[in-house]
């Protein structure tokens, strides 16, 4: 049965995407640990299907400022990868890469911004590479783009992208832990509905 809405997915399908997220985030954590030269762990990913307003509240407050790296996916899986970082995570990256500490988002200069962009790019590419190998599919990634702004405004991008086909967002949400501290950084995989069907079929779990 083809999935027409995110809510149509049964528990097997959801498990498949949790597993995909788990493989992706595992590879992303390895890549991040190489970039930062420190141990990076990951939490088991969550798959959530939420209305727009609930999705924003899942991640924080709509007016809260975050830094986000966005990459658009095309090919066998279409959609968006979004890597969202809060202050402590940004500082963990900036301290190791550009030897800088900030206590306000206004202090993110061009150098810091490109450090975040590059880190995001590496994380997202390794995440997607793992998925393409697993499912033997091709996914093309756009050049990453960085924004530092309100969480709600940033999420309006995937919301508008899927808005014609869905009233909900499906987020495969992964989190990193650097050393012993849990740092707030969300890596979101947001696939479109058509790609869900393709991927489930490809993995041989379309009719369960």
């Amino acid at each position: 049965m083809a999935i027409e809405r995110y809510e149509d997915m049964n528990s097997t399908a959801l498990d498949v995407f949790r597993e995909i997220g788990s493989i992706g985030i595992g590879n992303a954590a390895t890549a991040l640990s190489q970039v930062l030269g420190t141990q990076v762990h990951m939490k088991l990913p969550k798959v959530s299907i939420e209305g727009y307003n609930e999705a924003i509240h899942c991640l924080g407050n709509p007016e809260e400022i975050v830094a986000a790296v966005l990459v658009e996916m095309d090919g066998d899986m279409k959609g968006i990868m979004l890597y969202m970082l809060k202050m402590d995570f940004i500082n963990a990256i900036l301290a190791r890469l550009v030897n800088k500490y900030i206590d306000d988002f206004n202090q993110i200069d061009e150098l810091s911004s490109s450090a975040l962009e590059e880190t995001g790019n590496i994380i997202i590419s390794s995440y997607i590479n793992a998925i393409t190998k697993l499912a033997n599919i091709e996914i093309h990634l756009s050049v990453p783009s960085v924004a530092v702004n309100m969480l709600g405004g940033i999420l309006s991008v995937p919301i508008a992208m899927f808005g014609c086909t869905s009233d909900k967002l499906m987020m495969i949400q992964g989190e990193f832990l650097i050393g012993d501290t849990q740092l707030q950084g969300d890596l979101l995989l947001l696939p479109d509905i058509e790609s869900l069907n393709f991927l489930l079929e490809k993995l041989g779990v379309a009719d369960v």
Binding site: G153, S156, V157, I159, D167
Partner: peptide, 22 residues
């Protein structure tokens, strides 16, 4: 909220948060 509307009269405020491309 997103994709939502409220109306009111005389007093108070109506607010919507973090309009991006919306």
């Amino acid at each position: 909220g997103i994709g939502d509307m409220k109306l009111g009269r005389q007093e108070g405020t109506i607010i919507t948060y973090a309009l991006g491309s919306c």
